[in-house]
Computed example of a mutant assay.
Amino acid sequence: MPDYTNYTFEDFVLDSRFRQWVLSDDPAGRDFWNNWLQANPDKLDLVLAARQFVSQMQQAQEELSDDELTSEVNRIRINRQQAQDWEGRVAYQRKVGWLRVAAAVVLVGLGSWFFFYQQSNDTPLKVYQQLAEQQTGSPLTEIKNETKANQLVRLPDGSQVTLHQGSQISFPRAFSTRQREVFLIGEAFFDVVRRPKQPFLVYTNQLTTKVLGTSFTVRAYANDKEAKVIVRTGKVSVFNTPANGKPGELANKEPAFILTPNQQVTFDSQEKQMKRSLVAAPEPIATTTAQAQLMVFEHTPVVTVFKKLEATYGILMNYDADLLADCELTAEFGSESLFEKLDLICRATESRYEVIDAQIVIYSKGCRPTK
Results as ranks from 00 to 15, higher is better:
Asp45Ile: 06
Gly97Cys: 06
Glu332Val: 10
Arg195Trp: 00
Ala102Leu: 06
Asp26Ala: 13
Val108Arg: 12
Thr233Asn: 13
Arg232Phe: 09
Phe267His: 11
Ser277Gly: 13
Gln59Phe: 05
Asn79Leu: 09
Gln179Cys: 01
Phe216Glu: 09
Ala149Leu: 04
Asp26Val: 01
Phe297Leu: 02
Asp326Ser: 12
Val236Pro: 00
Leu152Glu: 15
Gln135Asn: 07
Leu207Gly: 12
Lys197Arg: 14
Ser24Cys: 02
Ala358Ile: 02
Trp21Gly: 06
Ile78Ser: 11
Gln119Asn: 14
Gln58Thr: 07
Ala292Phe: 00
Lys272Cys: 06
Phe115Asp: 09
Arg368Val: 11
Pro124Asp: 08
Arg80Met: 08
Phe114Gly: 04
Leu338Trp: 11
Thr349Cys: 08
Phe333Val: 04
Lys235Thr: 04
Val127Asn: 05
Trp86Ile: 07
Glu187Lys: 15
Lys307Gln: 12
Ile76Arg: 13
Tyr203Met: 09
Ile185Phe: 06
Pro255Val: 07
Gly366Ala: 05
Asn223Cys: 02
Tyr92Met: 15
Gly186Pro: 00
Arg276Met: 15
Trp21Glu: 06
Pro124Thr: 05
Leu212Glu: 03
Tyr117Asp: 11
Gly314Lys: 02
Ala103Gln: 13
Trp36Ser: 07
Gly234Met: 03
His299Gly: 09
Asn223His: 14
Pro301His: 07
Thr217Leu: 06
Asp67Val: 08
Gln93Ser: 11
Gln81Asp: 12
Phe216Tyr: 15
Asp326Leu: 04
Arg180Gln: 03
Asn318Glu: 10
Tyr353His: 10
Tyr363Phe: 15
Ile360Pro: 01
Ala243Ile: 00
Asp31Arg: 15
Arg276Tyr: 04
Ile143Thr: 13
Gly186Leu: 01
Cys367Lys: 01
Leu64Pro: 05
Asp31His: 09
Lys197Ala: 14
Asn145Ala: 11
Val96Ile: 15
Gly97Asp: 06
Asp45Glu: 14
Glu283Trp: 02
Val96Asn: 13
Ser24Arg: 10
Lys197Ser: 12
Gln84Pro: 00
Ala256Trp: 01
Glu63Lys: 10
Val355Glu: 14
Cys346His: 05
Gln165Met: 09
Ile285Pro: 01
